[in-house]
Design a protein around this nucleic acid. Structure first.
Ligand SMILES: [Zn+2]
Ligand SMILES: [Zn+2]
Ligand SMILES: [Zn+2]
Ligand SMILES: [Zn+2]
Lengths: 146, 146
DNA sequence: ATCTAAATAGAAATAATTTCTATTTAGATA
DNA sequence: TATCTAAATAGAAATTATTTCTATTTAGAT
């Protein structure tokens, strides 16, 4: 598990629950709410609190293991980030099955300067937020869930 | 008020509160939570409910008058969209004063196809999410609030 | 095997958002 | 201008998401 290395590097202890959370996202490969994660983990950990989930998801986002996104309703979702290398990249979400993929191609730098001039802002950070339909869903694929 | 026209076109009634909400955002020119809006409108409308604010902000987002964004904490913010024409555009937010500006320059189409190939997604929608520092803040400008 | 700081459980508080019903009102129409 | 109706609102309450707190447990260092 490459993710363990990251936890170590970031001085986070490797607990069974943390591993389970990461595995959940790896297996599911789709975005999920803290509540979703909780419901699932409860199968294997009779005693697990929702605050534990919230705390860990937040930490995982900080260290780049997860990305946090605004779902269609007023809730936040998390999805796993497969690009553990530090490289610049963005994510795309399937509006049908909520799968998340990442990609590195980015041409934002080309227009950054011009936008800065036009808006009088100094740009510090950019994110692409892409939505689409994944191949599986396009082909009417089954929507296997965890 | 160009915004009135939009309300009419969208069959929304023009009520004093709706006008006040739009004016609030126009004058403030920064993003705000429903709660912020409520506190402000209460000055002029002794009787105004928070649900009214929520309802209207949501409607305004639907018709393109406002944009909804995820703030630094777990809350949603709204900012006014000055580009009432239907043209494709994006927004940039000042992390210091929360001002929102819009701009039309976008080169995403150039890489869209390649991303679709690489990810096997059919891209339906893209948003840029930019953060930066506005000119006023860079110059240590006063942070006049409404 | 022992120790300590970090992680967790569990309960409770807080805060955001939505729902519901009775009342009011914008704007259409006569 | 007066009347009417669907849309908008108030106000209270419910629901849901998220955070905080304290006592207890545990990972990993020694
Ligand atoms: Zn899909
Ligand atoms: Zn980029
Ligand atoms: Zn600013
Ligand atoms: Zn664009």
């Amino acid at each position: 598990m490459e993710y363990k290395k990251i936890l170590k590097r970031k001085k986070l202890k490797i607990t069974p629950k943390r591993i389970a959370i990461i595995n959940y996202f790896l297996k599911k490969d789709k975005y999920a709410t803290p509540f979703d994660v909780w419901i699932y983990l409860k199968k294997n950990f009779k005693k697990i609190g929702l605050p534990t989930i919230y705390r860990n998801l937040e930490e995982f986002e900080k260290i780049g293991i997860l990305t946090k996104i605004k779902g269609e309703e007023n809730r936040f979702y998390y999805g796993i980030c497969k690009m553990l290398n530090k490289k610049h990249h963005h994510h795309i979400i399937c509006t049908s099955c909520h799968k998340i993929s990442d990609f590195e191609l980015c041409n934002f730098e080309q227009i950054k300067g011009e936008i800065e001039e036009m808006t009088n802002f100094e740009i510090k950070e950019h994110q692409f937020f892409l939505k689409g339909i994944c191949k599986d869903c396009k082909e009417g694929g089954v929507n296997e869930k965890i």
